[in-house]
Write a protein that binds this DNA or RNA. Structure first.
Lengths: 121, 121
DNA sequence: CCGTTCTTCAACCAAGTGGTTGACAACGGC
DNA sequence: GCCGTTGTCAACCACTTGGTTGAAGAACGG
């Protein structure tokens, strides 16, 4: 069901067209029609894309007569960045730890206590 | 077809189970069976998830007898982070510029040159 | 050599997705 | 008050996806 927001955000950005729209909206707000212009798909399709982005919290829409200007909500990016950075750092540290261990092993060569730092825990 | 890597990475991480696996792999390498253990789905399903992660470049597998230890590839994260940061900053700057303009408008009130900083370019 | 373990491949199924077209609601211009 | 513009909703279609089961391949342990 992909219920949580993080899933929705990642899923929303998995589509190149939607990433493109985000790039466009980063420059400035735009109406649905303006967003649809560069692509040769129907306006309805674009409307659906915007709905996906809105549901993910990446975009908000306001009312301006019959137009619906779309606005990029930058805060949601932090959610992703936090998730990414968390595991990237975790993995990075692990490599460094591994490097340290390898360095130790190189230094001590055939010492008595070369700890196993291989696959699983 | 969602061909490019960025699409594959985002799509891969759009699934909570796969994000969970990445979290697990950030702690240390694990075999397919070990990864499958916490979930009550078939091993085949997990194998498919790993294939998705591998195709996205997030995970690599090595051979250890009949086991296939999975290893997290942290570099791909940078691809995402770069994309995200690019547009986040772009949007951020726009807000700051808008704030400046609003401040100017507040200061000069009905001046002759209030530049249009509204919707499209 | 044979059985067991670990993993993947193949076929299938229900549900979701991105696209289409058609209808319709809302609003401004005339 | 009508008409064109703008956007969404609904139904439909082809394709993908996450899951299943069954079979098969690859490597260890007798």
């Amino acid at each position: 069901m992909a219920g949580d927001q993080l899933s929705r955000v990642f899923a929303a950005l998995a589509d190149p067209t939607r990433r493109d729209m985000v790039a466009r909206l980063a420059v400035g707000d735009a109406t649905v029609g303006e967003l649809a212009d560069p692509y040769d798909v129907s306006v309805q399709a674009v409307s659906k894309h915007i709905k996906v982005l809105t549901d993910a919290g990446l975009v908000s829409q306001t009312k301006d007569a019959q137009r619906r200007p779309c606005h990029l909500e930058a805060e949601v990016f932090d959610l992703m960045t936090k998730w990414i950075e968390r595991y990237r750092h975790q993995a990075q540290e692990r490599y460094e730890r591994l490097d340290t261990v390898l360095a130790e092993m190189r230094g001590e060569e055939q010492s008595t206590h070369h700890r196993e730092q291989g696959a699983a825990s």
